[in-house]
Structure formats: C-alpha cells, structure tokens
C-alpha cells in the first residue's frame, strides 16, 4: 500500500509538472482528486487495509492529498499567470501608431476670437446681441449722426440694395436699435458680419466686427480705457498696454483710435508693428449725445461709451495670419490649425 502511495505521488507530481494549461491541470485534478480519482479511490480502499495500519495509511493518504492539492494550487496560479502574460503579450498594441482618423474638428478663427471676447465681456455684465446684416440707412447712418450726403459717409464704402436698405457697413446700428427700446443701464456687445465695397490683401468686402456699448450714470473715458485694457490683457497677455489717439467718428465724441502694445515684440518694435511697438486695432469713444438723444436717452443724465473692433484683425495678430483672404478661402489645411 505504501509503495502504491509513493508511486502515485511520484506519478501525480510528474503529471502536474508537465501541465501547460489550466485545462490540463483541471484534468489532473479530476483524475487524482476527483470523486472517482485515484487518491479518492485510495481513501475508499481503506476498508481493505488492516485496521492497525489504517491510521498510518490514512494519514499518509491525507498528507499526500494535501500536498497534491497545494501543488495543484501553486501550479494553477503559475499557469494562469503565464496565460495572462501570454494574453497580454498577444494583445499588445503599438501605441506610437497614429490613428487614421482625424482628431476633433475645429472652430473657425473668427468664431474663436468672437467667443473669446464674448467670454471676457459677459462676466462684466455685457449682454450679447445680434442684429440684422441687411439694414436700413436710418440705423446704419442717420441714427448715428451721419445724415445723407455727409462727408463722413465716405468713411465707409457701402453696398446698397435699395436707396434706403443696405448691407451694414459696421455693427453700430445695433447701438441705436437697442437704445431705442431700452433705458440705461445698458451694457451690450454685438458681434457680426459687416460689408464694405473694397477688396485687397488687407481689406475684405466681408469682415467681422464686435461692437460694445455701455450707457449709464457715472461712466467716463477712463472706464472705456479700463474696459479695453481688461479685454486686451485677457485676449493677449497681462502686460498688454492700451494707447488712445484722437480720431473722429460721427457717433462718438471724443473719438479715439486705440492701439495695443504689440503682442509679438512686447512693444520693442518688430515687423508686425512696423517698428512702432503699437498696433492699431479698434475705434472707440464716448457716445455722442446726439445719438443718445436720437434714441430717447437723456444725455444730461447719462454718458455712454462705445467701441468696435475688427475680429479678423485681432485673429491676424493673435495667430500670425498674414492675409485676410485666408479666412474666407477655407482651405482645410488652414482650418485644421485652430485647435482650441
């Protein structure tokens, strides 16, 4: 009996060692330790063992059983580890391989800049508004203190549809439209397409502006400068400076051209700013009281400021785009570059 046990042990251990998969191990387990396995058979055969030998043999069988179970367990772990390793090995990918499809799509740089400016101004209490692109002469000019045949009309070469309906040459008509219907406090910002009949490398017959208007008590030219500094510093960088130069717009008085310190060279002078350290980006001023009065706002109580900037101009500076025509050509190689 003892030899039988020893032989069984040797045989079983050898078989366990040879196992290469969990399936084989399971097979060995069933054959030796299963219900009708050989070890189980030994226990069942105890009745044939002499009663005095039974405790000894029984203990031997149990020891063997425990030993084999432990061995099996160990081997199981070993094999499943190997199997997992193989599986992982076989599933390995080359992570450096480029995906065949495109990354996310992009928004047009005009949209990006417009949204950025809106996001800067909305928390300051500005409402975003859009107005009609096909406008009346009244809102485009007359309401803004530019009567018919006034020399200031030469400032914009306007596309006309009829004598009194035109493509808006600026986003300013929304100033008048909004003020006619609302009393101060007013804080609005109006982005959108505008149209002028000229075209070359720096002029497009269609371009985008964003107009800001604030009307309230206790509003000053210093507030206009402060707001524009805030916008410029958030749009470019915190060191950006704002400079006012006197200018003329019929709907503001005083009127200023606004220069920003060149974001490219930080004001030292470079090719972008033509060596001046400053870049002209927008026009602004205190709303002319004639305009306030035209729209039914008491100019003795309220001051207003307004500013209007060209979106393309800002995008050109911010992203280093050399030619305004690139915006409207929509070459995919251009569009794809503006990842947010």
């Amino acid at each position: 009996m003892q030899e039988k046990i020893t032989a069984l042990r040797t045989q079983c251990i050898a078989e366990i060692r040879q196992c290469a998969s969990t399936a084989q191990l399971q097979d060995v387990k069933v054959r030796y330790l299963g219900k009708s396995g050989q070890i189980t058979a030994l226990l069942k055969g105890m009745k044939d063992v002499a009663p005095e030998d039974r405790p000894k043999i029984g203990s031997m069988v149990n020891t063997l059983r425990n030993e084999l179970e432990e061995l099996l367990e160990k081997k199981t772990v070993e094999i499943s580890e190997q199997e997992m390793k193989r599986k992982l090995q076989s599933e390995r990918v080359d992570v450096s391989l480029k995906s065949l499809d495109e990354p996310l799509g992009t928004l047009h740089p005009i949209t990006l800049v417009t949204q950025q400016i809106e996001e800067i101004l909305v928390p300051l209490g500005f409402k975003v508004l859009e107005g009609p692109e096909i406008e009346t002469d009244y809102y485009s000019f007359q309401a803004l203190n530019i009567p018919a045949d006034h020399p200031a009309r030469d400032m914009q070469d306007t596309f006309y549809i009829t004598d009194s309906i035109l493509l808006r040459p600026h986003t300013s008509p929304m100033q008048a439209r909004y003020m006619e219907k609302h009393q101060p406090p007013i804080k609005i910002v109006c982005p959108g397409k505008v149209f002028r009949s000229d075209s070359d490398a720096s002029h497009s017959p269609v371009f985008n502006q964003i107009e800001g208007l604030v009307v309230d008590k206790h509003l000053t030219l210093c507030d206009l400068k402060g707001t524009l500094e805030y916008v410029a510093q958030n749009l470019f960088n915190k060191d950006t400076k704002v400079r006012f130069r006197p200018s003329y717009f019929p709907f503001t008085e005083p009127s200023v051209e606004v220069d920003l310190s060149c974001s490219n060279c930080g004001g030292k002078g470079c090719s972008l700013c033509k060596g001046t350290g400053w870049i002209e980006v927008l026009g602004a001023g205190m709303v002319n009281p004639f305009v306030l009065e035209n729209c039914g706002i008491d100019s003795s109580k309220y001051n207003g400021y307004a500013f209007g900037m060209g979106i393309e101009r800002i995008a050109m500076i911010k992203y280093g785009i050399p030619d305004i025509r690139l915006f409207y050509e929509n070459d995919q190689r251009f569009l794809k570059q503006f990842k947010k």
Partner: peptide, 24 residues
C-alpha cells in the same frame, strides 16, 4: 486731445450699475 490721452487712466466701471450679462 491737446492735454494728452496718456493722462487717461483705466478704471473698470466701478461706479456703474451692476448688470447681468449673457447670450441669447
């Protein structure tokens, strides 16, 4: 314009009414 616009110092509308901004 003669006194000089450099004398204008930026302020951020500290005395105006608080309004709620947003998009339509």
């Amino acid at each position: 314009r003669v006194y000089g616009y450099d004398n204008i110092v930026g302020t951020l509308m500290e005395k105006t009414t608080i309004t709620t901004g947003g998009k339509p």
